[in-house]
Design a protein around this nucleic acid. Structure first.
Lengths: 203, 203
DNA sequence: GTCTATAACTCGATAGAC
DNA sequence: GTCTATCGAGTTATAGAC
């Protein structure tokens, strides 16, 4: 559980971090190995010592995202809010902030890869799915905690999946339009839905 | 209004159609000009006679999508159903069918491009946005037609944008997981939302 | 408008010394 | 584990005859 894979070298870590950033900013295919090497100040021999191929580097990036999901995305939101519903919206607000910080240019890195990578990359698709599943599990914790305020028989897993759907769809439109409005709209309609669920749960 | 741009040649049409299909199946960047030429049985001189660059070809593809949106996506759904709400879900059911037909490998071509193309392609982004806007407008017609059954003050534009959000987010997850379930879940939760809106509109 | 040939370059990946 | 040099293939795009 504690030992991850290998004693990591700083070179390897730098490669993964630079690749992560470039794949996010420009996409996987448009990012060349040469650019990664340049910005990481690493030579090609070192990269191919750690990663047999570019796809293996992407796999490492996705593994890192999976490791960082809790500490970077979920935990800060959960620490800011204690109410389970507000925790969900705090997570969504994190994406709003990151959209803004990137000037509406960068969305969810996992969602980007989910659509950029055609299905000839099974390990990539598996890791994208694992990232989604971990995200949904975190939200599902909140929905579970809300259970007695929601209508009887509400399917927490389905609702959590829906929250991910709304986040990803909203981020996509915000990027496409170059404005935050579609994302904020999506979040606000989602909140309206939750309010109606809660109102029904009371009655 | 009727004359589009130019008297079109069959070669040009074949190039656009093959490019459209390949960009959808494999993505824009992984698709090489050589592959397009091969499958369209066209030589490079002809391609560059019509399109100064690969990006211009993509622009033509996106213009074609915009032209085909009504006849291929919206009209068939609207013809199948007359109730405005059912029309919305008939459009969504079209995406479900196309997901299935592609074996969960191909989602929404516009959504794919929205996330694959970084923002260094202004014409592409504009056309992606135009496609989204046309899609939302079609759905908004339905929401407008529902107005008197919805709670007072419901923002039809916001609801239509939310429907697109849910479609795109659902398609993304379906592709990522390789199963229709996340999409069907998204649509069914969206229906639950509409039912609650309608119930509130009655009261 | 279509043809062939190819320029000019970048790509991912490798070899082999250190 | 890191270095330099480079391979071979594939890339977008062009030249120029027909």
């Amino acid at each position: 559980m504690s030992v991850k894979t290998q004693p990591r070298s700083p070179t390897r870590a730098r490669l993964v971090e630079v690749a992560r950033r470039l794949f996010h900013e420009r996409g996987y295919h448009p990012t060349g190995i040469a650019q990664i090497l340049r910005e990481a100040e690493v030579n090609s021999g070192s990269l191919y010592h750690f990663f047999p191929s570019k796809e293996d580097l992407l796999v490492a990036v996705l593994e890192k995202y999976r490791e960082l999901l809790r500490p970077m995305v979920i935990d800060p939101a959960f620490e800011r809010e204690s109410d389970p519903l507000e925790r969900v919206f705090a997570v969504l607000d994190g994406y709003r902030k990151r959209l803004l910080e990137s000037n509406l240019k960068e969305g969810c890195p996992i969602g980007n890869l989910a659509l950029e990578m055609s299905d000839e990359h099974p390990r990539v698709r598996r890791l994208v799915a694992e990232n989604f599943t971990a995200w949904r599990a975190a939200v599902e914790e909140c929905i579970d905690a809300l259970a007695d305020r929601l209508p009887e028989g509400t399917n927490a897993e389905a609702v959590a999946g829906f929250v991910l759907t709304v986040m990803e769809g909203g981020v996509m439109q915000a990027r496409a339009y170059g404005t935050l409005e579609p994302y904020e709209n999506a979040v606000s309609v989602l909140r309206d839905y939750f309010e109606r669920l809660l109102a029904d749960g009371e009655g």
